[in-house]
Design a protein around this nucleic acid. Structure first.
Length: 212
DNA sequence: TTCCGGCGCC
DNA sequence: GGCGCTGGAA
């Protein structure tokens, strides 16, 4: 089926993407918030700043001053809102015991709780669930939408959950597969399926959509 | 729909 | 100097 074929083709073309590099899972969740509408390169700078200050720890990060936090995450942009978003998330985390790994609630419950946090929307919530908590949730982002749109697989106004279930219902419920697929779509979106000046001539998916 | 924003690339 | 970046809120 198509959804599977797209994955196989992308995997054969690009290989393992190795998302998402980290020392701790908290770092993954923090990265998920910092990377909102932001190039990963800039998020890395911010995370390295936090690491250098020894602040990649929930309690320490919550105790740092607002100005200091903003200064450290500044390279990731939107630093005023992101500082607040990080604090909101960390407060939630501590209400839940302070450790992502020890949260044993079912995925839907956690997702709903994450979505209540101001500054965490569907994509960020699902990124945290998938990449930091190893829950089988497919992450839908702008690249995903664009790739599917350009191949006419979804409607113009298809909403988040519709796209998400398209993947989840056509793939085995496999965390590693979901992680890899999303990473591969991002790779495709950067290399070929760009918003501007798309490289359709060399698109690895071209062979799947040739009609003659 | 618009704002939030630093950063690197064309 | 303009544009897009592993979005979300109002």
């Amino acid at each position: 089926m198509l959804i599977r074929k797209i994955y196989d083709t992308l995997y054969e073309t690009y290989g393992e993407q190795n998302w998402w590099p980290h020392d701790t899972v908290l770092e993954v969740a923090i990265g998920a918030i910092l990377t909102q509408n932001t190039a990963w390169r800039n998020v890395e700078k911010a995370i390295n700043n936090l690491k250098r200050e020894g602040l990649l720890d929930g309690k320490k990060l919550l105790s740092v001053s607002d100005d200091k936090l903003k200064e450290l995450i500044r390279p990731a942009g939107f630093y005023n809102q992101k500082a607040e978003r990080l604090r909101s998330f960390l407060k939630y985390l501590y209400k839940k015991g302070g450790c992502l790994k020890k949260i044993n609630d079912d995925t839907k419950k956690i997702r709903n709780e994450l979505l209540q946090i101001k500054g965490i929307g569907k994509e960020t919530a699902d990124s945290i669930l998938l990449y930091a908590m190893d829950r089988p949730v497919f992450v839908v982002d702008a690249y995903t939408r664009r790739v599917l749109r350009r191949h006419n697989i979804i409607k113009e106004k298809a909403d988040y959950e519709t796209i998400q279930s398209l993947f989840e219902q056509n793939l085995p419920k496999d965390v590693s597969l979901y992680k890899e697929y999303h990473a591969l779509l991002v790779k495709l979106g950067k290399e070929h399926c760009r918003s501007r000046n798309p490289q359709c001539g060399t698109c690895p998916l071209k062979i799947l959509f040739m009609t003659d």
